[in-house]
Amino acid sequence: MTHTPVLPPAGGAATGLAPARRADIRACVDSFDPTLASTVRSAMAEMEAELRRRVVAPGDPWLSEAAGHLIRAGGKRLRPLLVILAAQTSRPDPGRVLRAGIAVELMHVATLHHDDVMDNATLRHGVPSANARWGNRLAVLVGDHLMAVACMTALEVDTTLVRRQGWTLTRLVRGQAMEGSVLRTDQSAVEQYLQVASDKSASLFALCGWAGAVCGGADEAVAEALADYGEALGIAFQISDDLLDIVADSAASGKTRGIDLQKGVRTLPILHALAAGDQHAERLADILANGAVDDPALRHEALERLRASPGLERSYEDLRRHAAVAENALARVPDGPARDALLTVSDFVVKRTY
């Protein structure tokens, strides 16, 4: 293995509070082997064009406009990137890889529509959410349309992808149902959080690794190794998102801090901070007692206390641990530029929070 992972050192939470720049996915691709980077850019450009074409509903201008709304707004497209890279570990069929990447991304965008309805969100990717623009009923229907197109696109690859897609959809629904539900007696709050992250976020990443491997003609062992990589990476990605909500420099990252507090969502850093048993934990419990923190002054105080809490470093430790699990899964994948690139992606997921 020619790549040496560059994980920030323990104690990095302190250095992550005011970074001048954060890693982005374009810089990540630029760091790949030059030949692979060129292949990835070409495949991503083709996928973007085909993604936009696929959501068009012939004879229905409104549905075409609404279905393409969030897709045109952009996004990291990390999931299609993972499909492409996983396929490159073997001998990819470009057409199958293209369709598999689109199928996964459409599933992701469909869930965003449903999430925004459940959360009463008004913005997504810097534009009005579909529910804010067209109402909840139509936003749900747009999400359903995108999921249907995702299924039809997967069927063009093969039925094994459709079966795996169905299993992933079951996990997505289970994770969404568990999020915010009453804490189970057989799980701690952190255990429930990790289960939700696994089902709601990591399941799609696992599908990306598996689908890319299958489209590359990899054997079952390699496909499952790449699914394991995706699963661990997906949990790490969710933790990094939670950390960004606390430590991000809004001007540099484009992310507004404190959204989870405003929604009353108890993310991993919040759970660790509440369990710390210090003065910050006691005050945070008071601030969070009523759920959503609507008062900007209280939200600011909560953010400052979260940044000062030892719970923040515990979350960074969890982030690094899951990234390491992802990297270890790649030991079962053939060596080469694609595997090195997948290691670079796991580095990116950690480094984006510093």
Rank of each mutant, 00 (worst) to 15 (best):
G336M: 06
E179I: 00
E179D: 15
A326D: 07
R77G: 09
V29L: 00
P94V: 03
A338M: 07
A45V: 10
R137P: 15
F237Q: 02
I102D: 09
L207H: 12
G336A: 09
D260T: 03
P8A: 11
T344I: 06
D347Q: 01
Y229W: 02
D228S: 02
A308F: 11
L161M: 13
A27K: 08
V162M: 09
E48C: 08
L161W: 02
G16H: 04
G126Y: 07
A248R: 08
M178V: 13
D158F: 06
D30M: 04
L141T: 08
K351E: 13
A275H: 03
L284W: 00
G336L: 01
P5L: 05
E282N: 00
A297G: 09
G75W: 07
M118I: 13
D335T: 09
A23W: 00
A57S: 08
L7C: 05
H300K: 09
G16D: 14
A20M: 04
I84D: 12
D318E: 12
Y316K: 02
T39Y: 05
P34R: 01
F237A: 01
T170M: 08
R96S: 15
R52V: 05
A292R: 10
P269F: 04
R26K: 12
N290T: 14
T256R: 11
R133I: 04
A218I: 02
V196H: 11
V157G: 01
T168W: 03
S253Y: 02
E220P: 12
E179K: 09
G74I: 02
R53E: 12
T159M: 09
T344M: 07
N328Q: 09
K200I: 07
A297Y: 01
D340P: 01
A292V: 06
A211R: 06
R72V: 11
M152G: 14
P80C: 00
V83A: 11
L141H: 14
V29I: 15
Q192W: 05
V345E: 04
R91I: 02
G126E: 10
T15R: 15
H114M: 15
V56L: 12
